[in-house]
């Protein structure tokens, strides 16, 4: 340190403000409102939910403590495992497709296109449409009696009879995945477009001078640069998609049979059709480890990017 400067000992460098009582109190006071909100809005209901899941509570009637009984019942409930399987297929299938489509569209929209602003606005429309409206519209489009998709396919001679897209166990899950993809692609497109726009143009020029073609530039420049954005967008989207309720509830209600029953749909049915609140909450909480893992991963990635 120069003259007149302050010389810090190594121990002083490592001593954080928390070691000073006044700073500690100030810090605690400053985070206190946030703590109150988190504990009050999230912590207390979560604890209540956990305690509820340990009872045989039914709506309108008092519950009694059953310990881990509901969770034990879940383990032996084939419907629960089917819902878990469907949830994973729905979430990971939709996220993979959204990532691919979003990446492709981001690459296109990053180019110097005529009316580029207009295209970007159009791509944003599915994101702006309310989920319920989107689900109802798609349900009509998929209809086998008066839906536009079957009408076009029939007119084109590609099918002989209308296909019950939402009514067949072979196609229903894929059909609802497609709705989620349509709705979620703009999020990926614009997240990745933002990432593309911060890549230094000189990198492309240097690569071109070295003889790298478009594919090579995408592979060696774009993908490494976008990797963090892709991972974070995928993690967030996985959490949202796993929890998606409206699309499936409105279009198939979880059917036909149980072909599109996911964990949120099963939770709803148990709570409001069977009135088994304790079991429904246990169903919902059983998926919590997946979310906790994803949230921890996302938080670490965010923290890594901030550093």
């Amino acid at each position: 340190m120069g003259e007149g400067g302050v010389t810090l000992s190594p121990s002083a460098l490592h001593r954080g403000p928390s070691q000073r009582p006044v700073d500690l109190i100030t810090g605690l006071l400053m985070v206190a409102p946030l703590l109150v909100v988190i504990v009050g809005v999230m912590g207390a209901p979560l604890l209540q939910a956990v305690s509820l899941s340990l009872t045989d509570k039914r709506i309108g009637l008092p519950g009694t403590f059953v310990g881990w009984g509901n969770y034990g019942r879940l383990v032996h409930d084939p419907l629960f495992w089917l819902a878990v399987r469907n949830s994973f297929l729905y979430a990971f299938g939709a996220v993979a497709l959204k990532l691919l489509a979003g990446f492709g569209l981001a690459l296109v929209l990053n180019e110097e296109l005529p009316w580029r602003g207009l295209w970007r606005a159009i791509i944003l429309i599915p994101w702006a449409v309310p989920e319920l409206v989107a689900a109802l519209t798609w349900r009509w489009m998929y209809s086998d009696t008066n839906g536009i998709i079957n009408a076009l396919l029939l007119r084109a001679g590609l099918i002989e009879f209308p296909v019950p897209w939402l009514g067949s166990p072979q196609t229903a899950l894929a059909a609802v995945v497609l709705i989620n993809v349509w709705k979620g692609v703009p999020f990926f497109t614009f997240s990745l477009l933002g990432g593309l726009q911060v890549i230094d143009a000189e990198l492309y020029e240097a690569a071109a001078i070295d003889g790298a073609g478009w594919a090579s530039q995408v592979r060696h420049i774009v993908l490494p640069a976008l990797a963090p954005v892709m991972v974070i967008a995928s993690l967030l989207s996985t959490i949202w998609t796993f929890n998606d309720f409206t699309t499936i509830f409105v279009t198939t209600g979880g059917g036909p049979a149980y072909a599109t029953t996911t964990v949120p749909i099963l939770t709803y049915e148990k709570a409001f059709w069977n009135l088994e609140l304790g079991y429904a909450v246990a169903t919902s909480l059983a998926a919590a480890p997946v979310f906790i893992g994803l949230i921890v991963l996302a938080t670490r990635l965010f923290a890594g990017r901030e550093r």
């Binding site: 897209w165 939402l166 279009t251």
Partner: peptide, 22 residues
């Protein structure tokens, strides 16, 4: 029974009838 009836709600039969398909 229309194959898609497996995804109809209570309004599905009304809609199909009024659309002339039932």
């Amino acid at each position: 029974i229309p194959p898609g009836a497996l995804s109809w709600d209570d309004g599905g039969n009304n809609n199909a009838y009024m659309a002339g398909t039932a």
